[in-house]
Amino acid sequence: MRFSIYRYNPETDAAPRMEECELPDSDIAPGMMLLDALRLLKARDETLTFRHSCGEGVCGSDAININGRNGLSCITPLSDLKQPIEIRPLPGMPVIRDLVVDLGQFYHQYRAIKPYLIVHDPEPETEYLQAPEERDQLDGLYECILCGCCSTACPSFWWNPDKFRGPAALLQSYRFLADSRDQATAERLEELEGPYRLFRCHTVMNCVDVCPKGLNPTKAIGQIKKLMLKHMA
């Protein structure tokens, strides 16, 4: 099985390069995921650097660009991939080494939407109550694992990663706007106003295309715009 892997060590390399490498077919078992292959490749060349942790699509640390598409290597079956399998770091982010990128800007945008409940009333004596129907509003939003596949696939985020919140942060913003317990709707909407933070989204929908959890940030962004319309009236 053939691979073409992006290699770059800023301390020693003048420029990034693509490295061709191969694994004998005898090493490939049926049902193997791309992460398993990367582990085998690392066993042969331990300088190959990539992030990974849980190995089952829950932690979101192994997001990379696979044959031109962002995805999680641990839940991408090798058998689905065209060879040579081209592996690159997430696009548009500064490369720390090989497949490891600096997601600082991504996290900055996430923090900026205040990803926690804001309540102005005095805190209740017991737990916050929420009807099942109200809880249902959070389906399709709370499942995000912040892997960064969507935001780093978004052209608007490529051009303005410092000002545009990006699909991941906006999906989370709507997750709190939609939460019946949150009381900061007006503040949240006002914070997103302006030409950049929300409105750089041009519904390209790359985010929807690549999300490994099958979520729909574009729809969430549309819901935020609808909420703005309601609050205008």
Binding site: E190, L192, E193, G194, P195, Y196, R197, L198, K225, M228
Partner: peptide, 13 residues
Amino acid sequence: MMWRASGFRAWLL
């Protein structure tokens, strides 16, 4: 609510 900048209004227009 005050809409200072031009994001929402531009989108609506």
